[in-house]
Nucleic acid binder design. Sequence first.
DNA 1: CGCTAATCAGTCGTAATGAC
DNA 2: GTCATTACGACTGATTAGCG
Lengths: 218, 218
Amino acid sequence: MPANMNREDDHIVHFSQSCYADAYTQMVTQQGDQTSKPIRRRRKKSKGGNAGDGGAKKRKLSEKQVNLLEVHFGNEHKLESERKDRLASELGLEPRQVAVWFQNRRARWKNKKLEEEYSALKKEHESTIFEKCQLESEVLKLKERLSEAEKEIQRLSQLPAETVPSNSTSSSPSVDTMAGAGQPVLGECEIMDTYTDIFNTTTFYYAHAGMDWISQYM
Amino acid sequence: MPANMNREDDHIVHFSQSCYADAYTQMVTQQGDQTSKPIRRRRKKSKGGNAGDGGAKKRKLSEKQVNLLEVHFGNEHKLESERKDRLASELGLEPRQVAVWFQNRRARWKNKKLEEEYSALKKEHESTIFEKCQLESEVLKLKERLSEAEKEIQRLSQLPAETVPSNSTSSSPSVDTMAGAGQPVLGECEIMDTYTDIFNTTTFYYAHAGMDWISQYM
DNA sequence: CGCTAATCAGTCGTAATGAC
DNA sequence: GTCATTACGACTGATTAGCG
């Protein structure tokens, strides 16, 4: 809520940068006071002073503060101004800081969520592809069996009036045959296309997340 | 909207820090922004001096600067210091600013990319699901045809020695029959499961992006 | 030094709400 | 209705910590 801070944070009036120091971080210890240069600031890092736990020589929030904020964020991502003020005084921060922290936290949370959903979707997609492959090979298998069966029908219907040997009647022979020859049916399966597709269009480090099933083909 | 008019003075406050003035902003300004609203201000505002300026405060980079930076970023996301310095002087910025801009640009580009890939993947996933459905129905169809064919074989092989009527021999009748009855085969298709899954696990505004195909079922 | 990742903050637009 | 306030989101700039 950067925009509306006017109300309760008037007194602060954005003294940008270093001017915040007092209000923001309780231990500023840093006097460097080059309040004038926004950029070019090459400060030395921590001076010996504060070390310790939440040290925060700059305007960083202390660990304790962040923890408490996290807890409250976990309970509720939104922040009504009543809660904001209460939290602020609990933490010794300006209400505005609390508001900004929540805002940023929400934004970060969204990105994280997106990443999670992406990898979940990817996993699901991969397994769907796998199932699709299985279906494709099943279709091939069935088509061959069907073609065999129809050949058989053709044969049977065309021989005029003979007695057919009883052991060739049932469909089981052809079934077994096809099942035995089932290996090469993957020829038409698009698994390899999809495979390369997946790995070419993504450059994320977790790209290999859910591809375990592929080992079944190797 | 009248809503955001109140920011004017906020800007002024920052700007009065002055530190920015030189390095930042060549005026982004173009103020046509808030022009003439008679905003009733009631806050104590900052000190102020700045009355006269027509707006133009904000440390934002000018459009021209951003465009040039974008172009260079498009060519190469990395930034060697030679290039950085050259760019900086071209733009009238601190080299440090250029570096920061590139850093942020890279970081944010990643998120954007992730979002793009997410929606691309989702689209692909949906079409894969669709294809899988088609395959499932094809499998059902084939299984029925096969079963018909085997019944036929059974019949043919069991009738002793008759002359089979020529018009019932071919397999085409059963094929046509199945194709005609193709509609209800979706009964076992998991499309609805998947459908609800997709819409429950995502809350993005572009969730409906690639579901056009679903209209084929409605 | 440069980079990434994380963090903090300011700006703008805008929707929801309440007062006049 | 208009106007103001407030809260939020998206975007952007800047800082810091840590790695190589």
